[in-house]
Design a protein around this nucleic acid. Sequence first.
RNA 1: GCACUCGUAGCUCAGCUGGAUAGAGCACCCGCCUUCUAAGCGGGCGGUCUCAGGUUCGAAUCCUGACGGGUGUACCA
Length: 565
Amino acid sequence: MKLKQEVNQVIQAAFDEAGIDATPISVSEATKPEFGDFQFNGAMALAKKLGKNPREIAATIVEHLKTDGVIAKAEIAGPGFINLWLDDNWIATRSSEAVADARLGIGVKENPIKAIVDYSGPNMAKQMHVGHLRSTIIGDTLANLLEFLGDEVIRQNHIGDWGTQFGMLIAYLEETGEESSVSLRDLEQFYKDAKKRFDEDPAFADKAREYVVKIQSGDSHCLGLWQKFIDISLGHCEEVYEKLGVNLSREDVRAESFYNDELPKVIDALKEAGKLQESDGAQCVFLEGDEVPVIVQKGDGGYLYATTDLAALHYRAQVLGAKRISYVVDARQAGHFKQVFRVAKEAGFVPEDVKLEHVAFGTMMDKSGKPFKTRDGGTVKLIDLLDEAVERAKEAIKDKSDYTHEQIEALAKTIGIGAVKYADLSINRESNYIFDWDKMLSFEGNTSLYMQYAYARIQSIFRKYGKQPEGEIVIGDELEHRLAMMLLRFEDVLERAAEDAAPSQITAYLYDLATLFMKFYERNPILKEGVAEETRQSRLQLANLTAKTIKQGLNLLGIDVVERL
RNA sequence: GCACUCGUAGCUCAGCUGGAUAGAGCACCCGCCUUCUAAGCGGGCGGUCUCAGGUUCGAAUCCUGACGGGUGUACCA
């Protein structure tokens, strides 16, 4: 439920009632439990405008505040803060509703939009490496989140399947012929071998260059080989997606080559819009205030990635009808996107009301703060990284003797992959990310395993109880009040995370929730003797809603839960 | 050179559209298991929020400048 909105409405009503002609600023979560659940800080700002004492204004607001529904108590503190406590009965009713609802009381957007999330975008010439990890999982989370909140999400995997290097690869594919599918098993090696042939044999190099021309001119034999190569390469990516538990399929692929026919039209349209200028033989768009132009066509007539991005923006806005287009791409490309977005808007490729955003993320570093590489300085293949995560997760499982071999495998997979994803998603995406196995697989702090443990602990209670809880939630003490409040905030958190494209806001919330639950669990016995039945049912339901919220939250992050740990 | 970005505890990070005494985890010290998973909970130690100005009733947050790190800067993507 939109909790803040509920509270804001009460404040607004008080404003109307008191005859204050202003729209109140939104309440914010209280900074401390002593200050209640929410605080309204608007009286101070209003005081200035009205030329009155802030405490007097606060008093007027409080006087007209309805305290027989959502809010139970309001107090004025300090210079004019209004601290608000929500009503226990109201909270209890709302959380009882939430636990009974499949969506946990979270609404579906009334005016959904078409939202495009462009993410992953691997290069077909190479195997996926760690550089693709962040885009893939941050993008997937954003897509899941928007979808859950009700938008119509179109996932776009803008794979790199075009360019001069493909001439070389196709030539080599043809040369190796029958064995190709075998040698393609390791794309990295295939690329290296092809490159070696290219460098050593001038005849092969010429052939490779010939192939580039042939592919681009639509030669069917070459295109067939190219298609085969792309299929196999994409198959490798799908293996990774499968392992990662990412919701990307073939239908989401809109490759670079998809826009080939549109590229000349982009140039024409820019010319039409009066944006095009020739400079040093290249076709450019010069933007007011920018030193460097956006080059859309090279001196030799070739197109560039800016051209493709413009074509894609046009397609997404005009053909697909997107109102929000999010590019989940490395922060280093900020300049590029800033320019391309500007060109797209100025040239009318994208209507003004479409939100274009670069969901930028920082570089992945190793523990010593240097870019993440293998021991010998090469790039780390994503598939290897994921396999290692599963292996390490296996090591982290205590009391392995409690499980069968198969159970350990399954557990390690969920835990290992989940840990990799959670660690990445839990930090502010824009800063660089320090990849640390030990921290990632720790049970302490804001980690995937702490969340898993909290969830499993609750499941353990239900296993012991043996039945489904069916009572109502009743707020019995301060801790239960805080826990229920926290649970009801879930939708606000998701809304905000979607707005900011910030998965870390979800993990931060989940961690706070799990921590609060642990406190509750230590102090408020559930199944122990001497607990009144009504209290027991209520606490079971609170535990139930906590578990469901954790599960739903992790699910949005693309992480599975385990019933037992 | 110019542009963008970051600078919070020894380390890794929060800090939600400017609010009350800046918070977690790790590390270090001290408590708590005869009954729901102690992979937990409680307590302690630890800060000139890089620095200097400015706006404001009020600044880690906004503006300007300095210092320090990162990144980008015309025909690769």
